[in-house]
Design a protein around this nucleic acid. Structure first.
Lengths: 333, 333
DNA sequence: CTGAAAGCGCTTACAG
DNA sequence: CTGAAAGCGCTTACAG
C-alpha cells in the first residue's frame, strides 16, 4: 500500500493536521517538527493523493479538450498550445476524440463534467444547438475554438475565415491574375466552407470580376479531392492562371496533378493554400498559404478559460491570420 | 451548487445508500423507488462526482501519456491510437508534453502519480536510468513506446529500427542501385540514429558492398537538414543513384533540393524515407517510405497497460514495419 | 428492499 | 506551535 498522510503522522509522532500544513507550506509548526516530518516523508516515499485533495478543495486543476480527430495536424498544434499554458498554470489536460460523432461528443461532455474539470476547450466541428444546450447545462467555463455557434453566449476564438479567403483571393488578383479559380470545401460547412467562398466572391466583385461557376470546384479538404478538383477546373477553363485552395492538402493535390501533367508551378499556374500546416513548407515548390495561428489559439483558449474561472468577463475574438508567401505563386503581366 | 447524492436522497425521501445503488445499477430496491429516484435525479440534474467515487474506489480510470512534443505528427497518431482503446475501456487520458526536458519529465511523472493514474505511456526519448528509477518507484504500470532502456524490466513497444533500415537499404539494392547513400540522424541517438545506421551498414555488407564514408551524411531528422545533407552527399559523390533518408522530412528535403537543381526523382535519383507520415503520400512525387504502425502502437500500449493492471504478464514487442512503395524510387539497370 | 455508519485521504476552522 | 474533529461526496459491508 502507498503510504497516506496518516502513516506519516504516525511515524512522525504528530497529527495529520501538522503533516498537512507542512506538505502545503502553510504556517504553524516549528522548524524542528518540519525537518523531522520532511525526513519521514522522504523515508516513506509519501506523496499526497491528489484525488483526496481535489475532493476537499473542490478543485481538480484539470481541463478537457474535445477535438474531432486527434491525429490531425490541427489538433496536434492546438494541443501543443493548450498544454503549454495549462502546465504553466498548474493545469493538466484530458484529451477527448469526438470522431465528429454527436453521441461521442455528448458522452465526453458528461464525462468531463463528472470528472469535475474546470474548463473545456471545444474544438469539435460546428457547435449545434444540441451541443450548445449540453454545454450550458454543465455550468463549466467553455471556449469554442475555430468554430462558433449562432448563440453568442459562449466565447469563441477563431480566424475570420471570410476575411482570410478575401485576402488570399486579393493577393492573387494583385499579382495580376485575371482568371482566379477556387477549390472550396463543402458549401454546407458553415465554418471552413461557405465563409471562405463568400470571401472569395467578395474579393472578385470588389475588383470588378464577374462571378463564374466555371471557376469554382468543390472538394472535402483532402489531398485527393484537390487533385480531382483541379482536373475538373482545368477542363472547364484551361485559361485559369491562379487557384485558391481552401486547404493546404487540396493545394498539394493541385501541385501533384500539375507535376504529373507537366504544368509548371508557379510559371503556368499559381496556387495558394490555407492553414499553413507543416506540409506547406516542405512541398515542392514550397506553398504560399494562409497562416492560422493554431497553437496561439490553444494558448489563448486556456487563458480565456482561466479568466472565466475567476469570474472575469471574456469576449469572443478573431485572431489575426497572415499570408505566408513562398514559391507556389508568381506575378503575372 | 451542484446537487450531491445527499440532495437526491433528501428529495426522494430515501437514504444515500439506495441512491448509490440505483445510480450504479446494483440490486437492492423496488422498481417503484428506482423510478422515483431516477425522476428526482433528472429533476435535479444530478451527476455523480467522479472525484469522490475515485477516492473510495481507489480507481481513477485514467492514464497519462508523456510525449516529447505534442505538435508532432508522431504524437498525434500515437494519441489517436491511445485515446481509441482507452475510451473503449472507459479510461480517460492526460497528455503531458515533456519538451524533451528532463525536469519536465520527472515533474510530470510525479504529478501523474499524485493524480493516481492507473497507467503511463512513456513515449519520450531514450529512457535514461534516471527516468527508469523514477518510473519504477512509482509502482504504476508503464509501457515504453518507440524507445527502450537497457533495463529490461519495463515492457516496450517499437519497430525494430535496425531491421527496418536494413530492409529499406536492401530494397534499394534489389532495385539495382550500386551507390546507395544514407542520410542519417545523429549517431548518438540510440533510438532512431545508430540502429538505423547499423541496419544500413549490415545490408550493404550482406550484399558485398564496401562501407564508404562518402556515402554517409548526417542530419537531425528535419527537412532543412535533409536538404543540406543531400547537397553535401552529391558533392562528395555525384554517382549516387539512391538514398535512404532516416526520416520522411529529410527525404522531402532531398526532393526539394533535387527539384531546385533539376535532378529528376526517381529518374536520376531514387529516395526512400522513414516514418510514413501524411507528408509522404502528398509529396511530389509521392514518397516511398518505411511505414511504422504508430497508431497501432498507441492501441497496443493501452492494451498492455490494462493487462498489467490486472496483474497479467506482458512482454516487450517489436511491431511489424513495412515498405510502402510509391513513386520516388525506381529500378535501375 | 432499505438505512445507519464507517471509511476513502485529505483540509481546515476551532480551541488550546 | 499543535491536535481533535468535522466534512468533501461518494461506496459498501452490516443489520434488519
Amino acid at each position: 500500500m502507498k503510504p497516506t498522510i496518516k502513516d506519516v503522522a504516525k511515524h512522525a509522532g504528530v497529527s495529520v493536521a501538522t503533516v498537512s500544513r507542512i506538505v502545503n507550506g502553510l504556517s504553524g509548526y516549528s522548524n524542528e517538527t518540519r525537518d523531522h516530518v520532511l525526513k519521514i516523508i522522504k523515508e516513506l516515499g509519501y506523496k499526497p493523493n491528489e484525488v483526496a485533495r481535489n475532493l476537499v478543495n473542490r478543485k481538480t486543476n484539470t481541463i478537457g479538450v474535445l477535438v474531432p480527430k486527434l491525429s490531425s495536424s490541427f489538433s496536434a498544434r492546438l494541443l501543443q498550445g493548450i498544454e503549454r499554458v495549462s502546465h504553466q498554470n498548474q493545469y493538466t489536460v484530458f484529451v477527448c476524440n469526438t470522431d465528429s460523432s454527436g453521441t461521442r461528443t455528448l458522452e465526453y461532455l458528461k464525462l468531463l463534467s463528472e470528472k469535475q474539470v474546470e474548463g473545456i476547450v471545444f474544438a469539435s466541428k460546428y457547435l449545434t444547438n444540441e451541443y450548445y444546450e449540453a454545454i450550458s447545462s454543465l455550468q463549466i467555463p467553455t471556449v469554442i475554438v475555430s468554430s462558433f455557434s449562432k448563440r453568442k453566449e459562449l466565447p469563441f476564438l477563431k480566424v475570420n475565415d471570410e476575411e482570410a479567403a478575401y485576402a488570399a483571393t486579393e493577393y492573387l488578383i494583385k499579382k495580376g491574375h485575371q482568371r482566379v479559380a477556387m477549390i472550396s470545401g463543402p458549401k454546407k460547412d458553415l465554418i471552413a466552407g461557405l465563409p471562405r467562398i463568400i470571401g472569395y466572391h467578395r474579393a472578385l466583385s470588389d475588383h470588378h470580376f464577374d462571378l463564374d461557376e466555371n471557376l469554382m470546384a468543390y472538394g472535402d479538404f483532402t489531398y485527393t479531392s484537390g487533385y480531382r478538383a483541379i482536373e475538373q477546373l482545368l477542363k472547364k477553363d484551361p485559361n485559369v492562371t491562379a487557384v485558391f485552395a481552401a486547404s493546404d492538402e487540396m493545394a498539394l493535390g493541385v501541385i501533384s496533378y500539375c507535376y504529373e501533367k507537366g504544368i509548371r508551378i508557379p510559371d503556368q499556374l499559381s496556387v495558394i493554400g490555407y492553414d499553413d500546416t507543416e506540409l506547406a513548407q516542405m512541398s515542392t515548390p514550397p506553398l504560399t498559404t494562409v497562416h492560422q495561428p493554431i497553437q496561439k489559439m490553444g494558448e489563448k483558449a486556456v487563458e480565456t478559460l482561466i479568466k472565466m474561472g475567476k469570474g472575469e468577463k471574456v469576449e469572443s475574438r478573431f485572431l489575426p491570420f497572415s499570408i505566408i508567401e513562398r514559391l507556389s505563386t508568381r506575378t503575372i503581366r
